[in-house]
């Protein structure tokens, strides 16, 4: 045990680990908070779609030789796609899930093809898809920290409105509030969070950061505030444990574990534990 702690201490001495930790905690917080609303609005797949668009955008940035500034390319593209996906969802005549499927697989395909035009990006492709928090550059980290603090602040300021638009959009409209404005706020915050989260979790796993903490805390919590707070806590705890395990644990084959995937596995464990807790408490009540 003491050995484990000294090992963690050893890793915390590296600046790249510190960066990954700080950026990752903030991004997990953003994703978990927005996730509650997205899951309840049945929008969670939008997160998935947007992350694939983010992948395509990152690929475009790479082709344009803007790899170092890829966030500046992908954030606007993903924010714009978020508007479109929301519009499609409002328009009941087009099946929302099919549209998301088209956009997400389309963006993934376009991104992959574009990447083959540039040379020697194979490890980078892997990083886009599965994340690599430990390779985040200093400027990436600064931008992520700044943007996620903005997202968190806006979330707190809009909290009551986000609850209302999640619970009953038509009541909000009926009583003179601009529900669409708050939907847009949610979409923009989500888009920014997803692009930032891609660095940590990768395009394929970022939606886990949005969905898991929310569904886990919905197992046991009964009020919106409780669900929001506990998914924030779950997200941060899972991120820290996941990062620690992926740094410290070495598989029998001699490799360390991929960070993003490890974080998702920890989230799955928490979800299963809380589901079991719910089963047991409901059985006891009977």
């Amino acid at each position: 045990m003491a050995d484990l702690f000294s090992q963690i201490q050893y890793y915390l001495g590296f600046t790249f680990v510190q960066r990954a930790l700080i950026a990752g905690i903030l991004i997990s917080l953003c994703a978990a908070l927005l996730g509650v609303s997205l899951v309840l609005k049945r929008y969670s797949m939008i997160g998935d779609g947007l992350s694939h668009v983010g992948f395509g955008a990152t690929a475009i940035a790479a082709v344009l030789n803007l790899t170092d500034a890829s966030l500046y390319v992908s954030i606007p593209i993903v924010v714009i796609s978020a508007f479109f996906l929301l519009r499609i969802n409002e328009n009941t005549k087009i099946k929302g899930d099919a549209a998301i499927g088209i956009i997400s697989s389309g963006a993934l395909a376009v991104g992959t093809v574009i990447i083959s035009f540039t040379n020697g990006l194979n490890t980078d492709v892997c990083n886009y898809l599965f994340g690599s928090p430990l390779t985040m550059t200093k400027s990436d980290v600064y931008l992520s920290v700044a943007l996620s603090i903005v997202v968190l602040l806006l979330f707190v300021l809009f909290y009551n409105k986000i609850f209302a638009v999640t619970f009953d959009e038509s009541f909000m409209k009926a009583t003179g509030l601009r529900a669409n404005l708050y939907n847009t706020v949610i979409a923009v915050l989500t888009a920014v969070t997803i692009v930032l989260g891609m660095k940590v979790m990768g395009a394929l796993l970022i939606s886990a950061l949005i969905i898991f903490p929310a569904v886990s805390s919905m197992r046991v919590c009964k009020s919106f505030l409780a669900v929001t707070v506990s998914s924030a806590v779950i997200a941060v705890v899972c991120f820290i444990i996941g990062l620690a395990v992926s740094c410290v644990y070495v598989s029998p084959a001699g490799y360390t574990l991929p960070t993003g995937a490890t974080i998702v596995i920890i989230n799955i464990v928490v979800f299963l534990v809380l589901s079991a807790v719910k089963k047991i408490t409901t059985l006891k009540k009977k």
């Binding site: 309840l40 009551n160 609850f163 619970f167 669900v227």
Partner: peptide
């Protein structure tokens, strides 16, 4: 409102004051 929506009575009534 979907079946498993976590919202307390207090939160819902208060949301009426939002306008």
């Amino acid at each position: 409102v979907q079946k498993d929506f976590p919202a307390s009575v207090n939160e819902i009534v208060l949301s009426g004051c939002l306008n």
